[in-house]
């Protein structure tokens, strides 16, 4: 039997929720970054699921763009973490509060 598309959407919602909770609770910069990747990934799953339901390939192409943006974001973000670590010897985001408030 074939799987209803709504199940994929529920799975994507669950993964998004896990990513949200991770991004809010963790202090390690890398883990927060990984949580954001999780959220991007669940958005991708939603796009592909709707593209299947609506028989429209646009969703798949948007996923391609999201992949590229995620790659760019990962490159710049990790470079920032390297620069931060060089200055502070930590990437614990609770202890990096120079620009806070």
């Amino acid at each position: 039997m074939s799987v209803p598309v709504a199940w994929y959407l529920v799975l994507a919602a669950a993964m998004f929720a896990v990513g949200t909770a991770g991004a809010l609770t963790r202090r390690n910069g890398i883990t927060i970054f990984l949580s954001i990747e999780l959220m991007l990934n669940s958005a991708n799953l939603t796009l592909v699921a709707y593209s299947r339901l609506l028989e429209d390939r646009t969703g798949q192409i948007v996923v391609l763009f999201v992949l590229a943006v995620a790659a760019a974001e990962a490159a710049v973000g990790l470079a920032l973490f390297i620069a931060l670590y060089r200055h502070r010897r930590t990437i614990d985001l609770d202890r990096v509060n120079l620009l806070r408030w």
């Binding site: 209803p4 598309v5 959407l9 994507a12 929720a17 939603t46």
Partner: peptide, 27 residues
Amino acid sequence: VAAGAGALAFAAFAGIAVWRTSADAEA
């Protein structure tokens, strides 16, 4: 609080997903 926010996100997205696609919609 964060777990609550995550649960809220899940409920909102799953609710909208099922509501908008009429749960057993066959592609």
